[in-house]
Amino acid sequence: MLLYFICFLDLLSLGILLPVAPVQLASLGASRLLIGGLTSVHAFLQLTSGPFVGSWSDTKGRKTLLIQCLSLIFVSNILLLFTSSLLVYIISRILFGLTGHVQILVRAIVACTIEKSAQNDAFAKMGAAAGLSFVIGPLLGGVLNSMEDGFFKIAVLLNTFALINLSISFFVIDIDVKDQNKTLKKKPIVMELTQAFVNLKQIDWNIFWDLFLFRFLCESGYSAFFTTFGIVLMGHFGASQKEMGVTISLFSVTMIVMNLAMGKINEKIYAEDPRGYQRNFHGFLGLFSTFCFLYAFPGFHSYIIVMIVMGIFRAILDSTWMEMLVSRTSETNKGTITGSFESIVQMANLVTPVLATYIGENYGYVQTYLIILMFLLLGVTISNYCLRVNQSRIKTD
């Protein structure tokens, strides 16, 4: 329960800040180019530091590193209280980009401390917590930012959440810290960092290539979609900010319901799919069909349908990937693998938004659906191939 709460508050803070960050940066004198550049810098920092933090947690201990990351997140949020300085704001976000890896560490702790039979349910509940945070967060951030000294109030709230999470983290049980070799704890930090790099090199990445590729394809499609989401809805279909917020909430609510129901769905529908390949194929096929519908029938009401259906299949994919990932890891590399896997999101965010924006500005934003369909079609093709290979192996065995 403590881990779910930490996960929820961490993502709630992100959900509060994301919609108001561009507005705050603009009020401090940042240009559109600088705002976009900071987004890319944040994605790059998360991409490069995520695998390293995960690997370091395998050496240092996940609970220990979680406490340290939360401490630095608290410091980065304190800097947000200085709302009149653009430089201080940038420093705050750079620090957060390097240390904001709570989700990686929490997932690694869950994988180590919860029985395998209960892990799917645990990850599903974390997914539900994430969905709930992105229902409440943007709404709360918008309300607070509309008040006098709104961003200062947001900064105070973020510091409160960070302090609560930091306090809770001391009570988290992490079996690998308890049983860890004491000689590792006595090593200087330079040796710990060196060992973290060594851990990354020692992983047999051939075991995980398909999962990393599947997530990259899916996240690239989602990144292209949400990059142009507001422009298409408000600019082309005349939706208001309220209608756009409701549309996003539909996606989040669907994710919450689906994550809570995944245990029953797996039991009733996918009982014969222990390795997850069938669920993975169905997820990609469902998303591809959904965006084919959106491309053929673009419109505000189509977006409402798409957001609901998209939430269903995305929840299936997320829970399936975590199940497959954990089943392939060992006790000594869960942090390394989880950190690298979560960094795929940032890899997609580095490339796809630029491509989607370029095509949107030159050929029309509705044409960005073709990029999404390209990524998802690759996902359908490769997931179908992996499914057939797995079925052949089962018949052979």
Score class of each variant (00 low, 15 high):
residue 204 D to K: 11
residue 205 W to I: 09
residue 205 W to H: 05
residue 205 W to K: 04
residue 206 N to I: 12
residue 207 I to R: 10
residue 208 F to N: 08
residue 208 F to A: 15
residue 208 F to T: 13
residue 209 W to V: 12
residue 209 W to I: 14
residue 210 D to I: 13
residue 210 D to P: 10
residue 210 D to V: 05
residue 211 L to G: 12
residue 211 L to M: 11
residue 211 L to N: 11
residue 211 L to Y: 00
residue 212 F to P: 02
residue 214 F to R: 07
residue 215 R to W: 07
residue 215 R to K: 14
residue 216 F to E: 02
residue 217 L to M: 09
residue 217 L to C: 09
residue 219 E to G: 07
residue 219 E to F: 15
residue 220 S to L: 07
residue 220 S to T: 06
residue 221 G to C: 09
residue 223 S to W: 04
residue 224 A to E: 05
residue 225 F to N: 01
residue 225 F to G: 11
residue 225 F to P: 01
residue 226 F to S: 03
residue 226 F to L: 09
residue 227 T to Q: 01
residue 227 T to H: 00
residue 228 T to M: 15
residue 231 I to Q: 02
residue 231 I to T: 07
residue 231 I to W: 04
residue 231 I to L: 09
residue 231 I to S: 11
residue 232 V to Q: 03
residue 232 V to W: 02
residue 232 V to H: 07
residue 233 L to P: 03
residue 233 L to T: 10
residue 233 L to H: 02
residue 235 G to N: 03
residue 235 G to P: 00
residue 236 H to C: 00
residue 237 F to P: 09
residue 238 G to L: 03
residue 239 A to M: 00
residue 239 A to D: 03
residue 239 A to G: 00
residue 241 Q to S: 13
residue 241 Q to A: 15
residue 241 Q to R: 15
residue 242 K to Y: 14
residue 243 E to H: 03
residue 244 M to C: 01
residue 246 V to D: 11
residue 246 V to I: 15
residue 248 I to A: 13
residue 248 I to M: 15
residue 248 I to C: 09
residue 250 L to C: 08
residue 251 F to W: 06
residue 252 S to W: 00
residue 252 S to L: 06
residue 253 V to N: 05
residue 253 V to S: 12
residue 254 T to Q: 00
residue 255 M to E: 01
residue 255 M to S: 10
residue 255 M to H: 08
residue 255 M to G: 08
residue 257 V to L: 11
residue 258 M to C: 10
residue 259 N to P: 05
residue 259 N to Y: 11
residue 259 N to C: 08
residue 261 A to K: 07
residue 261 A to Y: 11
residue 262 M to N: 00
residue 262 M to Y: 01
residue 263 G to H: 04
residue 263 G to F: 06
residue 263 G to T: 00
residue 264 K to F: 14
residue 267 E to C: 07
residue 269 I to W: 12
residue 269 I to Y: 12
residue 269 I to A: 12
residue 270 Y to F: 12
residue 270 Y to P: 01
residue 271 A to S: 14
residue 274 P to H: 09
residue 274 P to N: 09
residue 275 R to I: 05
residue 275 R to S: 03
residue 276 G to A: 01
residue 277 Y to Q: 07
residue 277 Y to M: 14
residue 278 Q to D: 13
residue 278 Q to W: 06
residue 278 Q to N: 14
residue 278 Q to A: 13
residue 279 R to K: 14
residue 279 R to S: 13
residue 280 N to S: 15
residue 282 H to Q: 14
residue 283 G to S: 14
residue 283 G to F: 12
residue 284 F to Y: 13
residue 285 L to D: 03
residue 285 L to T: 15
residue 287 L to S: 10
residue 287 L to W: 15
residue 287 L to A: 11
residue 288 F to I: 13
residue 288 F to Y: 12
residue 289 S to R: 02
residue 290 T to F: 14
residue 293 F to E: 09
residue 293 F to L: 04
residue 294 L to N: 11
residue 295 Y to H: 08
residue 295 Y to W: 14
residue 295 Y to T: 12
residue 296 A to I: 00
residue 297 F to P: 10
residue 298 P to C: 07
residue 298 P to D: 04
residue 299 G to R: 01
residue 300 F to Q: 07
residue 301 H to T: 06
residue 301 H to C: 11
residue 302 S to Q: 06
residue 304 I to W: 02
residue 304 I to C: 12
residue 304 I to K: 04
residue 308 I to N: 04
residue 309 V to E: 01
residue 309 V to I: 04
residue 309 V to H: 06
residue 310 M to S: 09
residue 310 M to Y: 14
residue 311 G to K: 00
residue 312 I to E: 01
residue 312 I to W: 00
residue 313 F to A: 02
residue 314 R to Q: 12
residue 314 R to T: 14
residue 315 A to K: 11
